[in-house]
């Protein structure tokens, strides 16, 4: 990721992406792809901060107040994480930034052990989330449903 990318501001891809966070765990669902995700630790914190729009550098600075790692190390760990988030279409670049106050984490705690953020993707419910004519229509063709379609 080059310097200019580091300065690109991203946000959570709402309303297609919805999420819920408990303590250190976050579940995100992409309603348009049917893929859902589990994030924990620094990944959950970073994702929640992205709901308020942030660059990688800004995220790293905030995460460094909670985790026992330097801004540069966190930034380096965030770069592949951002690639994953973009690949899953969970975040999108912000064209014109919305004015906001300083980013801060809701959770308490400092000097926590830092583990590089990761993203787990679950695709087992995609066929249930999405209207899928390939699966909905059986070999006999339209309009005969495939066995088990929509179960």
């Amino acid at each position: 990721m080059n310097q200019s990318t580091e300065q690109v501001c991203f946000r959570v891809n709402t309303p297609s992406v919805i999420y819920e966070k408990f303590d250190d765990e976050l579940v995100a669902i992409h309603l348009d792809t049917g893929v859902y995700h589990s994030l924990s630790g620094s990944a959950a914190d970073a994702f929640e901060l992205l709901s308020r729009e942030a660059t990688i550098t800004e995220l790293a600075e905030v995460l460094a107040t909670r985790y026992a790692a330097g801004v540069e190390a966190i930034q380096a760990a965030l770069e592949p994480f951002f690639l994953q988030l973009k690949k899953e279409d969970l975040i999108c670049p912000v064209e014109a930034r919305t004015p906001r106050g300083p980013l801060e984490l809701k959770n308490t705690g400092t000097s926590l052990e830092f583990t590089a953020p990761t993203l787990e993707a679950y695709r087992d419910l995609q066929s249930l989330f999405l209207l899928d004519p390939v699966h909905e229509v059986g070999e006999a063709g339209w309009p005969n449903p495939a066995p088990g379609a929509g179960v």
Partner: peptide, 24 residues
């Protein structure tokens, strides 16, 4: 609670075409 949400959230929303933010 994260484990419970993973079990309940996505599958509750999956087969309901109107599901979204409010459901979660």
């Amino acid at each position: 609670r994260g484990e419970a949400l993973m079990a309940l959230g996505p599958s509750s929303l999956a087969q309901l075409p109107a599901s979204g933010r409010k459901d979660l």
